[in-house]
Amino acid sequence: MASDELFVSGHRGCAGCGMATAVRMILQEAGPNTIVANATGCLEVMTTGYPETAWKVPWIHAAFENAAAVASGVDVALKKLGKREGVNILAFAGDGGTFDIGFQALSGMLERGHNITYVVFDNEAYMNTGIQRCSSTPPYASTTTSPAGKVIPGKQGRKKPIANIVAAHDIAYTATATIAYPADLKKKVKKALELNAQGKGPAFIHVFSPCPTGWRYPSEMTVELSRMAVETGIFVLWEQEGPDISNRKVSCPPKEKRKPVEEYFKLQGRFRHLLKMPDKIAEIQKEVDEKCAKLGF
């Protein structure tokens, strides 16, 4: 990769952190004329231990639930001061800071129409506080607050369909991506920032971010798991420009080529208990197949 990285080495991210790789790729695409507003979470903790920083772009962190609001303030201030032209504004947050506690601020930012690209790094639980259940946590995943016990087999309830909810705000661009497909991720970042620059309003990218520590898998398998989430149909790659859902471009393997969800589960400690529960695996497989069928795959 190029030597003019904007997210640099030396930070304290875990080996195999999916988010760190994604951030690096996103900033490679966004370039130096970029300001980042970051929510509290692993990304902030691991990259900005005073007096060090991993960021070579202007970066601001205020709190957990408000990356979208802080970014909104930066946006209008630069506009008023005549410094907005040619500058990308990115809001970065984890799934907790987006699906749960930051959802209201995100919705407000989307409604107000700021030319900001909001990126959620979704590792499907509150990892920074020690792997607690979130509305992003998939069914039956074992976390420290939804443990797989003798009576209850991990998280109850579904995963909040955040990208669909965001797209329902009728914004300029909504996409999902993973680091297993870097060209796709970068293309989506480019598209989002172009639409921001054209004044078309907010963009949102849902980045699936495997977490070796929280999901309990070997750190060298992050890219493989990212790919397998797509190959099983568990995480569907798509992009949608504008509010019209018929413009949604979906990339999903057809049923005959999709890998069984069990292959994805068996690589991760958080789903280990499911391997003894074929009915639960069948239930998820059915849900995934139905979801993909609805999308025409």
Partner: peptide, 28 residues
């Protein structure tokens, strides 16, 4: 008045935006 009025969805976001705007160099 030549100013940006940012009507947020809560007071929490109003102060959050104030922080972002002030850090960007604006009088808020």
């Amino acid at each position: 008045m030549d100013a940006e009025l940012l009507l947020t969805e809560s007071e929490h976001s109003a102060m959050s935006a104030a922080i972002g705007a002030s850090a960007a160099g604006a009088r808020v």
